[in-house]
């Protein structure tokens, strides 16, 4: 068991990072009236300095500003995609688990079919159907990410379904719908919520991968994937900052979100007897 102090440290540092990231992406664009797309070729590829803490890119655009905008888009994509994937996954998983039989078999074969295609390939297929933009990317991430949630929720519902409290509800006259919605679903929501939080960084990475391959957002739009992609050429020339900072902004919030999710999970499973032992 981890030392409670490390535990607290992890929780608070994670919360701090997530807080700073949220404040930055929410407040900087409306408050700082600067154009992140303003090109200034006289200032291209400047290393980090006081004027440009993250340096500038090959078109002389301020990287700090572009990173904040990029993080904003990536987070937006991550959050919305995770939300959509969780809602779809929970609905499918709960329906399969609670209804069972024919419905269960059909839905789970569907999940298997989706899972059998490599995620990136499936994601690329979805974005290829539409014009480049934020929504196709969100759809692409959601399509590939609801599967695991569906599986988690289904197995959770299956194990809950055999508990006597479901028998008791049935015996008390509850309809199948009421058992599913009032007794089974609330019991799996914390698990599904946890899966959703952990999915946010996952979705951000998926977006970055698509953008890095040039299939995600239009390249003028600052997203973390696009930033790393455009920085690739300058990295070979020895300019490290255009790659490093977007990369860090992908990794650090990922760790922070995972840290928060971990703390949440610890609270979800308090050994019930541990406090009182009654």
């Amino acid at each position: 068991m981890a030392d409670p102090r490390t535990h607290r440290l992890r929780l608070w540092s994670s919360a701090l990072v997530v807080g700073v990231v949220l404040l930055a992406v929410l407040l900087v664009p409306p408050l700082v009236q600067l154009d992140e797309q303003a090109v200034d070729l006289s200032r291209k590829l400047l290393p980090p300095s006081w004027a440009h803490p993250f340096g500038t890119d090959d078109l002389g655009r301020d990287l700090l500003l572009r990173c904040v905008y990029g993080l904003r888009i990536s987070l937006l994509v991550g959050l919305v995609a995770a939300l959509v994937a969780t809602v779809v996954g929970t609905a499918v998983g709960a329906a399969a688990g609670a209804l069972g039989g024919w419905t269960d078999r059909t839905l789970m074969r569907l999940v298997d079919a989706f899972s059998s295609v490599p995620h990136l390939l499936l994601g690329i297929f979805v974005v290829a159907l539409f014009q480049p933009g934020v929504w196709p990317v969100i759809a692409s991430v959601a399509v590939t990410h609801w599967l695991s949630t569906a599986r988690i929720v289904r197995s959770e519902v299956l194990s809950l379904r055999t508990r006597p409290f479901v028998d008791a509800a049935v015996s008390g006259g509850a309809s199948r719908w009421r058992v599913a919605v009032r007794h089974l679903l609330p019991a799996v929501l914390p698990q599904a919520g946890l899966a959703a939080v952990l999915m946010v960084p996952h979705a951000m990475w998926h977006e970055s991968a698509l953008s890095f391959l040039g299939l995600g957002l239009p390249s003028h739009q600052a997203s973390l994937g696009n930033l790393v992609q455009t920085a690739r050429s300058s990295l070979l020339a020895g300019d490290w900052w255009p790659t490093l900072f977007p990369g860090l902004l992908l990794i650090v919030p990922t760790l922070a979100i995972a840290g928060l999710a971990g703390a949440w999970r610890d609270r979800l499973n308090p050994r019930r007897r541990s406090e009182l032992m009654l």
Binding site: R163, P164, F165, D167, A168, A169, S171, H183, A187
Partner: peptide, 12 residues
């Protein structure tokens, strides 16, 4: 109906 184990028979 009343079951043996109240812990599992009650929605937590």
């Amino acid at each position: 109906v009343v079951f043996q184990q109240p812990r599992t028979a009650a929605d937590p």
